Computed example of a mutant assay.
Amino acid sequence: MIARIAEAEREGWLDEVEGLLVCLAGVEEKLRQLHRGHGQQTAVDLGIPAARGDR
């Protein structure tokens, strides 16, 4: 993504640069969220499946 931003800047594609910067900011924020939540998983109760004859 950094390379695409650099290319867009070289070519003078200002709208493209802006869009890529917004996208990059979103990706960076998502990575921060993932790192903050690492190790904080919670268990999810999936229930006990019923045998085919128990329905």
Rank of each mutant, 00 (worst) to 15 (best):
I5Q: 00
H35Y: 09
A50N: 06
A6K: 09
G26K: 06
V17T: 03
H38S: 12
Q33R: 15
R4A: 13
I48N: 14
E7Y: 02
I5L: 05
I2N: 04
G12T: 00
M1A: 07
V27D: 05
L31M: 14
A8G: 04
L20H: 01
R10A: 06
L24R: 01
L14A: 10
A51T: 07
M1Y: 02
Q41Y: 06
R32A: 15
I48S: 12
C23S: 13
I48M: 13
A51V: 07
A50H: 06
R10Q: 11
R55M: 07
L31D: 07
T42F: 03
M1T: 09
I5Y: 00
V22W: 01
A6C: 00
L34I: 06
V22K: 11
I5T: 05
E28A: 09
A25G: 08
Q33Y: 08
A8Q: 02
D54Y: 05
R32D: 15
R52H: 09
L20P: 01
G12K: 02
A3G: 01
E29L: 09
E7A: 12
V27N: 03
V17L: 05
D54L: 04
R55F: 11
R36M: 12
Q41L: 15
D15V: 00
V22Y: 03
E18C: 03
P49W: 01
A50M: 10
E16W: 01
Q40S: 14
P49L: 09
W13P: 01
L20Y: 02
E28S: 05
E9I: 07
W13D: 15
A3L: 04
A6I: 13
H35S: 10
V27K: 06
R52C: 04
R55E: 13
K30F: 02
G12L: 05
